[in-house]
Design a protein around this nucleic acid. Structure first.
Length: 225
DNA sequence: GCATTAACCACAG
DNA sequence: CTGTGGTTAATGC
C-alpha cells in the first residue's frame, strides 16, 4: 500500500493533518481490494472501522420494511463510508457494497476519533463533508418524492453521465432492480421509463450501456419531473 | 365518470 | 435477470 501522505485521492481532511498525524493514520489503516458486489460495511454489524473509497464505485443501502433494500446513494472515489454510524452508534445503521471492482481503506474508530480530537482543522473538514452530504440528501429527498418516474430516472442517468463518467455514453453497473431501488420504484417501472425516454429519442440503451442522444431534452425531463 | 400514473402479478424469453 | 401485458388502486380533472 502506498503512503497516505502521497495518496492521490486523499481527502481534504487528510490534507490538513500534520505530519505526525498522517503517521497515526498511516499506521492504523489498511487498504483492501474488493470485487463488484462485495460488502464494505454491513447494516446491523459492529462498527469498528470507517471506510474510505479510494477507487471504484459503491452504493449505500438500507433495509426497508418490505425486506428489500433501498439504495440511498452511489459512492464515488473520495467518499467516507460509515462515518455517521461510527461517530454516533456502535452498530452500522446501513450497508455499503461495491458495484464494481474497488479499493477501500479502512481505519479503526479509535484512531479516527483520536485524529478528530487532536486536530480541529481535520474535524472541521469532516463536518464540511457531512454537511455537503446531508444537503444532497435533502435535494434527493424532494426529488424522489415530487418527481415522476421518468424524471427520477433522468436524474440518475444525468448523474452517471455528468458526475461519474463525464461522458454521453457510459455503463451503469446496476441491475434493473438496483436501478429501481435507487430511484424508489419498481423493476417494471424502470423498464417502462427507459422505454419512454428511448421512444422520444432522448437516450439509447442496450443492457447496462446508456447513451444520451438529446441532452437538453433529458435535462428538461429531469427538471420538470 | 374518465384519464393518468405506477405498483403488483404472471408469464415468456 | 429482464421485458411485456393485464389488472388494480390512487389521484386529479
Amino acid at each position: 500500500m502506498e503512503d497516505c501522505e502521497y495518496c492521490k485521492i486523499r481527502s481534504k481532511a487528510v490534507e490538513v493533518l500534520k505530519t505526525e498525524e498522517v503517521v497515526i493514520l498511516q499506521e492504523n489503516c489498511a487498504e483492501v481490494e474488493l470485487d463488484a458486489d462485495e460488502i464494505i460495511i454491513k447494516e446491523g454489524s459492529l462498527s469498528s472501522h470507517i471506510g474510505y473509497l479510494k477507487e471504484g464505485l459503491a452504493k449505500i443501502h438500507k433495509r426497508g420494511v418490505k425486506g428489500t433494500d433501498q439504495i440511498l446513494k452511489i459512492l464515488q472515489p473520495g467518499s467516507y463510508i460509515g462515518m455517521q454510524t461510527v461517530l454516533s452508534s456502535k452498530i452500522h445503521q446501513y450497508s455499503a457494497s461495491t458495484i464494481e471492482k474497488s479499493k477501500i481503506c479502512y481505519i479503526d474508530i479509535t484512531s479516527f476519533k483520536q485524529l478528530i480530537t487532536k486536530n480541529a482543522d481535520f474535524a472541521n473538514e469532516l463536518i464540511l463533508y457531512l454537511c455537503r452530504d446531508e444537503l444532497t440528501y435533502f435535494t434527493r429527498f424532494v426529488n424522489v418524492h415530487q418527481k415522476q418516474i421518468d424524471g427520477r430516472l433522468a436524474d440518475t442517468i444525468l448523474f452517471f453521465s455528468d458526475e461519474v463518467n463525464k461522458s454521453r455514453k457510459f455503463k451503469i453497473p446496476l441491475k434493473r432492480s438496483d436501478l429501481a431501488a435507487l430511484v424508489c420504484s419498481t423493476r417494471e417501472s424502470v423498464t417502462r421509463a427507459i422505454r419512454d425516454l428511448s421512444d422520444i429519442g432522448t437516450i439509447k440503451v442496450k443492457g447496462k450501456t446508456f447513451e444520451i442522444l438529446n441532452y437538453e431534452l433529458l435535462k428538461k425531463i429531469s427538471e420538470k419531473g
